[in-house]
């Protein structure tokens, strides 16, 4: 995973709430077995059907920070939603509330999700709509979002922040605790099910 320390870019205002992962990338794009190349599916229905959709507007075409309404990433657990955002050039999504699985998935591939109070999302929307060229800096070291003369702090779990700053992947970290896993396995009740075929069943 690529490390995330700080990122500066322009931002796109996505004034929609409860953006589900079917909108971020529809099911037909999930048939692929690769981990990259999902940019063509990113918000494809809105990009196709709504000429005025924010990402169709040239002033937001190069945005790398997405500022969305509340409850971003609801629905399906598809990690393809995170991959599509990354493939589409986004490094940060800001919202007042995220769906749990999306937020968790984002930490696995180095997409930063930043939770800000809705008033601050509104203020940021106003700023990037007034001037789409406004640079927005998201600094994971100092846990702040800065644009113009405004700097606002955000919260992130220390452990997740450390993993993102270092670009560490979870499997390697867990393998350090193999002894604990083996000890747990020795304690498991023997009647727990095994998925192997039942003979004569």
């Amino acid at each position: 995973m690529d490390a995330f320390t700080t990122h500066t870019g322009t931002a796109a205002p996505l004034r929609r709430s409860a953006v589900d992962t079917d909108q971020i990338i529809p099911a037909e794009y999930l048939k692929r077995i690769t981990r990259t190349g999902f940019e063509d599916g990113l918000f494809v229905a809105w990009r196709t059907n709504e000429p005025d959709f924010v990402l169709n507007r040239p002033e937001y075409a190069d945005a790398s920070v997405l500022v969305a309404g509340p409850d971003f990433g609801t629905g399906s657990s598809r990690e393809h939603a995170v991959w599509a955002l990354l493939d589409g050039g986004f490094r940060v999504v800001i919202s007042s509330r995220f769906a749990d699985i999306f937020k968790n998935n984002s930490t696995k591939s180095g997409l930063l999700t930043v939770t800000l109070p809705q008033e601050q999302v509104e203020a940021l929307w106003a700023a990037i709509e007034a001037d789409p060229a406004t640079p927005v800096t998201v600094d994971l070291q100092s846990k702040t979002v800065t644009y113009g003369a405004t700097t606002v702090p955000f919260e992130v779990e220390d452990y997740i922040r450390w993993r993102l700053l270092e670009g560490l992947d979870d499997v390697g970290l867990t393998e350090r605790h193999l002894a604990d896993i083996e000890a747990y396995e020795a304690r498991r009740p023997s009647w727990l099910p095994r998925a192997l075929p039942v003979l004569g069943g």
Binding site: V82, N105, K108, S109, D169, V171, T174, E175, I181
Partner: peptide, 20 residues
């Protein structure tokens, strides 16, 4: 509970998952 593909890989490899 539902998990993403990176977590699928994690469970395949370790039969565990980091959780809050």
């Amino acid at each position: 509970f539902g998990i993403g593909t990176s977590e699928v890989e994690h469970v395949l490899a370790t039969q565990t998952l980091p959780q809050y």
